[in-house]
Design a protein around this nucleic acid. Sequence first.
DNA 1: CTCGGCCCTGTCCA
DNA 2: ATGGACAGGGCCG
Length: 305
Amino acid sequence: MHEGTISVAELPGGFDMQATVESGQTYLWDRADDGMFEDDHAWGSDAWYHTVLPATFTDTDEPQVIRVRLLDDHVEWEASTPEAPAYLTRLLRLDDDLDAIIDDCPDLPLLERAFTEYRGMRLVRDPPFPCLVSFICSAQMRVERIHGMCMRLAQQYGERVTFDGDTYFAFPTPDQLAAATEADLRDLSLGYRAPYVQRTAEMVATGEADPAHARDLDYEAAREYLTQFVGVGDKVADCVLLFSLDFLEAVPLDTWIQTAIEEYYPDCDGDNYADTSRKIRRQFGDRYAGYAQTYVFFYLRTGGE
DNA sequence: CTCGGCCCTGTCCA
DNA sequence: ATGGACAGGGCCG
């Protein structure tokens, strides 16, 4: 077992592990105490979180396990690989200069409140395929249930990994998921998303399309590219662009943000998705609109005014 | 390009 | 008890 610590003081802008991993950006982490996404757990807990990195992410032969917890002034990690700090930096965007990003965002009262409330929350950088599948599952679903679906997919179809005497499951590869049947996936409570997931996995497995390819395109073209996957519309495409592919300007227009736009920024309420998207990006700042959106989304969803 | 009807499923609430 | 609304949408006609 490899282990070590990362000093929070050296992370520009600080770090809030719980807000980062439980804010609905990612469904690929789990909490050792089984309290993930519970409504009434106390914030600021120092629980252990873990995730399994796909072999493709680490460019190694096997999936790698990483466990992390945040103590007062440092991040403590245990992993199956000595490269954990570098992987954590990628996954949790520990190299983003949060202070500079928040500085760069416009001075809007709602933004200020959200930034103040959850200072230290970072965006995530999930591996592309797991991110794509998890957000296909997210349609009309609560966060706890999306998380449950992803955990069941891993347990059912992913590679089993043993680390430090415990068993973990990697998120399934495109090949592994493509081999599932619609009925199998419905048994995991995916509902009408089951055929979407199966067909999308097949598209990736056969090489017909690759979500990572969207990286090479301009933002709007990238969003369009991702909508070719079954079960992926503009909103899910924006989630993948923002939470996996480094498009920090992407603003997923979900019902929460739609409501916020009507209430706080009615001028941004456009004729269609693309139109509203352009307007809200201008309002939130072209470069980091997605960071602003994620803070606002989480702030509103957790009961902020 | 826009629109409405429809889709799985667990939970909450009248 | 039990049905209808609803939950961070997308597909299809």
